[in-house]
Amino acid sequence: MRIALRLIPGLWLALLVAAPLALVGVMALSWQAEGVPPYSPPWAGEGTNPENLRLLAEDPYYRDSLGQSLLVAALTAALCLLLAIPMGIAIARAGKWRNALLGAVLLPFWTGFLIRIGAWIGLLRDEGWINAIIRGLGWTDQPLHLLYTHGAMLVGMVHAYLPFAVLPLFAAATRLDPLLEQAAEDLGATPGRAFLTITLPQLLPALAAAFLLVFIPAAGEYVIPELLGPPNATLVGRVLFQEFFQSRDWPVASALAVALLVLLIGPIILFQRLGRAA
C-alpha cells in the first residue's frame, strides 16, 4: 500500500512530465520530414540535427521572440506587483471583510478564461464599450484603436495573472505585526517612511515569490497575445504555434520550447528556494 502510494506520484511525473520532455528533446534534435509525424528522429538514419538549435542562436526572429516574451512577462509581473502590494496589504487588514475581498480576487477564476478575454475584446474594440463612451462624451469622432495593441495585451496579461501575485502578498501581509509600523512612527518615521523601511522589507521574500509566480507562466503565454496583442508581437508562444501548425516544422518548434525552458530554469530554482526560505 505504502509503496503504491509512493509509486503514484513517481508514475505521474514519469508519464506526464519526463516523457513529454524527453519527446520534445528528441524532436529538437530531429529532421523535418514529410509524413505523420512530420519529423524523422536521430535514429532513423540521418543522425542528430544540430541545425535547429543553431537557427535559434543565429536567426534574430527566434532570438527576438524569446527576448520579447521575457520582457512582456517581466512587465506583466512588475505591473501585477504594483497592484498586488496595496491589494494584499489592504485585504490582510480588512478585518471582517477579508474573506469577501479575497473571494473577489479569486472570482474571475469562476468564469471561463476565454470568456474573460472575450469581454476585454468587447470593451476595447473600435465599436466597443469604451469607444462608445468616448464618442458619447463627444471627445472624438474617430474611434481609438485600443484592441490589438501592446497596451491591450498587457491589460489582458495583468488581468489574468493578478491573483497569482495577490495571494502570496496577502499571505505574507497577514503575518505582519501592525504595531511595528506604529513603533516606527513613534520613533519619528512618517507613515510613508514607516512603510518603506519597516513593512516593505518584511514583504521582500513574498514580493520575489509573487514576481516569479507571474513571470514564469507569463513567459510562455500564447492565448492573450494572440487575441489582444498587435500582429507584430511575435512572442515565443505565437512563434511556437506558427512553427508547429503553420510551418509544420516540429523540430524548430521543439528547439524553441527547450530554449524557453532553459531560460526559465533559473527563475524556477530561485522560486523554489524562496518557497523553502519563507
Partner: peptide, 30 residues
C-alpha cells in the same frame, strides 16, 4: 500632532522590535 512629530516615545508591551534589523539598527532607527 501626528505620532511621528511628538517628542514622546513609547515602549510597546510586545516590544515591537523590527525583526529584519539588527539590535544596533533597531536602536539607531529613531
Amino acid at each position: 500632532v501626528p505620532p511621528h512629530r511628538r517628542p514622546v516615545n513609547m515602549m510597546f508591551q510586545s516590544y515591537a522590535l523590527f525583526p529584519h534589523m539588527t539590535v544596533a539598527a533597531n536602536i539607531a532607527y529613531g
